[in-house]
């Protein structure tokens, strides 16, 4: 007992002393995946610390639940990695300050006018498949619904996964009131519903499913990092659902200049130029050279679907009920 407590104390002490510096500290809350060596966190931290003369500290974890629990006593100066499905609740806390950026310069497939939440990268939902194993992928969402039931797909649970929720809204955006019927047609093809994206994608790379609910940008990783051109996203004429990750600054911050500088940094060339391969998604601003050629060559959907924050909030529960009912049969 004693030794373990001492050990814990020792570890905690070394952890804190490593952080202790004289420079001002900017505390940024981020999602779990962000701060690993394979997430975008380390590059963002290095890039910002080059210009800010400060110490950027990420706190990774349950981003919004933590903010909601802390309220105005939060230590966060800024947040990064919020998704559009939680911005309504985040906004309702009244904790956020305008980002002060010109959103007309953004290269998004939809118009973005939000003055609080600032997109830093984006992508679209898509079913990804292996071109060597699935010679004739469905050419449309409808074709996917009509495909024989031995075409197996893996999807994520909308209650525990961001991409799962995006799929829910994708189906709703295409099929509207017919969404439940669409789900009932899709359900027999769903081999399983996983709690997160990683488990689904693992099933796909293991050859367990023919297609996996993922992103239009997923093939880029395989092409660039693995030199593997067999993975492709099926592009559907009905359109693909838009997903973006957002950053914002808090009005409770004790480092308003630094927080503002961080907002400025997000749309800077340095940040936008590296995010494509750091987070395997499109930058919020696309200038020449920001996208590796393999990325730029990825097929893009002709149509982008998106629900505004309010719309999404209103239809969320109904869409979930339809989904649950379809799978309950």
């Amino acid at each position: 007992m004693k030794t373990s407590l001492m050990l814990a104390g020792l570890l905690a002490a070394t952890a804190t002393s490593a952080l202790a510096q004289d420079k001002p500290v900017l505390t940024v809350y981020a999602p779990d995946y962000f701060t690993s060596d394979w997430g975008p966190g380390p590059k963002i931290e290095a890039g910002f610390e080059d210009i800010c003369n400060c110490d950027l500290q990420f706190i990774a974890g349950d981003l919004l639940p933590r903010l909601l629990l802390e309220g105005d006593r939060t230590e966060a100066d800024a947040v990064i990695g919020l998704n559009t499905d939680v911005t309504a609740r985040a906004r309702a806390t009244g904790l956020f300050a305008p980002h002060g950026q010109d959103t007309s310069t953004l290269s998004l497939p939809i118009a973005w006018t939000d003055d609080t939440f600032l997109p830093f990268n984006w992508g679209e939902t898509a079913f990804v498949y292996d071109t060597t194993k699935l010679a004739n992928p469905p050419q449309s969402f409808q074709a996917l619904l009509d495909a024989p039931d031995d075409l197996k797909i893996a999807i994520q649970d909308p209650r525990s996964s961001i991409s799962g929720l995006a799929l829910l809204l994708w189906v709703k955006a295409i099929y509207g009131d017919e969404a439940q019927a669409a789900w009932e047609k899709l359900a027999p093809k769903v081999l399983t519903v996983t709690p997160g994206w990683s488990e689904s994608y693992g099933l796909f790379t293991d050859g367990e499913v023919d297609m996996v609910m993922s992103y239009t940008t997923s093939p880029a990783y395989h092409i660039i990092a693995e030199d593997d051109t067999t993975k492709a996203a099926a592009i559907f004429p009905e359109g693909h659902y838009f997903m973006t990750e957002l950053a914002a600054q808090l009005n409770t911050t004790d480092q308003p200049q630094l927080a503002q500088a961080f907002m400025d940094y997000i749309l800077s060339d340095a940040f936008q130029g590296m995010i494509a391969t750091a987070n395997w998604s499109y930058p919020a601003i696309i200038k020449p050279g920001f996208l590796p050629p393999q990325f730029a060559d990825l097929p893009r959907p002709a149509k982008t679907l998106f629900y505004s924050e309010q719309e999404a909030e209103e239809i969320r529960q109904e869409a979930l009920d339809e989904w649950l009912t379809a799978f309950g049969r």
Binding site: L11, A15, A18, L19, A30, D32, Y33, T35, S36, D37, W38, G39, G41, Q57, F58, I59, A60, G61, D62, P65, R66, L69, G196, W197, S198, E199, Y201, G202, S218, Y221, H222, A225, W280
Partner: peptide, 21 residues
């Protein structure tokens, strides 16, 4: 909720590797 973003354990690293393709 207590994560400090610094301490990385092996299982956590495993999940993060999976999450990063």
């Amino acid at each position: 909720l207590f994560s400090d973003g610094q301490t990385q354990t092996l299982p956590l690293a495993l999940y993060q590797l999976m999450g990063a393709y």
